[in-house]
Design a protein around this nucleic acid. Sequence first.
DNA 1: GGAAAAATGGACTCCAGGGTCCAGACCATT
DNA 2: AATGGTCTGGACCCTGGAGTCCATTTTTCC
Lengths: 203, 203
Amino acid sequence: MPRIVGQIDQAKSQAILDAAAEVLGTGGLSAPMDEIARRACVSKQTIYNHYGSKAELIRAIVDRRVEQIAAPLMAPGAQEHPQEALAGFGRVMLELVLRPLGRSMLKMTVQAADDMPDLARAFYEAGPQTSRRRLAEFLRQETLAGRLAVDDPDQAADFFAGMVIGVRQISGLLGVEQTATPEAIEQVAQEAARRFMRAYGVD
Amino acid sequence: MPRIVGQIDQAKSQAILDAAAEVLGTGGLSAPMDEIARRACVSKQTIYNHYGSKAELIRAIVDRRVEQIAAPLMAPGAQEHPQEALAGFGRVMLELVLRPLGRSMLKMTVQAADDMPDLARAFYEAGPQTSRRRLAEFLRQETLAGRLAVDDPDQAADFFAGMVIGVRQISGLLGVEQTATPEAIEQVAQEAARRFMRAYGVD
DNA sequence: GGAAAAATGGACTCCAGGGTCCAGACCATT
DNA sequence: AATGGTCTGGACCCTGGAGTCCATTTTTCC
């Protein structure tokens, strides 16, 4: 309720968000505010000055993520060979999903989904939905250009995204350790793109 | 701690588990024990007689699910045409993931993963991992039999599972509504199988 | 029918954690 | 140097919910 407009420290706001994302992401949503304060080297009161409640703090974290998330998810460019474009897109998705920040962000949002359905939906639209949309659009263009033969671009996009991500997303949510070397990421993206081309190539 | 061996009502144990799965699944892990008791038409004390604590109750729920889960996940039979077998396998996976019980179970386990990593791992192994293993084994056999050309069965199995499940699992976790008619399930399974055959068929 | 165990329900304890308050320190700006 | 704002840290209040207790009733088994 108390709208803050005074001489508030903007950099401190970010530090708090960072700390909160870190703590809530690893320890779960039930991690205490005191720990966030400690981690941010800030008094608890200050957190309540910047964000009015724990719920709003969580909102702010997810909101910020929602802003960042769509940026790297640009549709593949039509100038390169479609297989290369797909592989590139796949690599970006994989990194988004596998990077610690991405993993903990998703976990947080899932945990919050019960109490803040709108938040979860915003996250969903910014992440999973946007990525599929952009990819589907690319597939549509390539099909028009005669370089692919995709009859249902939305479904095909979901197929490709599913191949790339595979079991990794949910194993991440379940906290099962997995090695994700850059080489492994590259290999998966490449192979998925290759197989996708066979499945949807022009004859 | 208090091991129960007396004349305890076995059917009541199940009723409690059912109610708990329902309540914790929809309301989240933070749903109060009193509500579970009410839903199970049982006094709170009784729950503590059967299971010693909330944590153990959750364990019991997941354990039971772990038992059930592997059963329908038999590897496709080699007698039918591989495409049909794949479609059938895909259908089973989809239903496992989309059915309300499956969704709430996964959500529960994800929420519990922070505090009970072993539990989450058991769930992972019984579900996602087992399904991929069985499917991979099938692909290996079919390749040996010359009906498919799969070089990396584990990866291919993950690809197929990813195609079938797609965005649905995480949209379920995020509480985004989605229509999952039997026809839609069937269509996705069929189409995924068809495309997979093109991607991995013998020339 | 009677004894042992289990179930009931409702009151009770206890505590972690969200949120508040306050007194003093620390800036800015005027 | 004075005023209006923020920051600190630590004590503090308060609530929800886990878990316990208990007197009474019901069930089960001999």
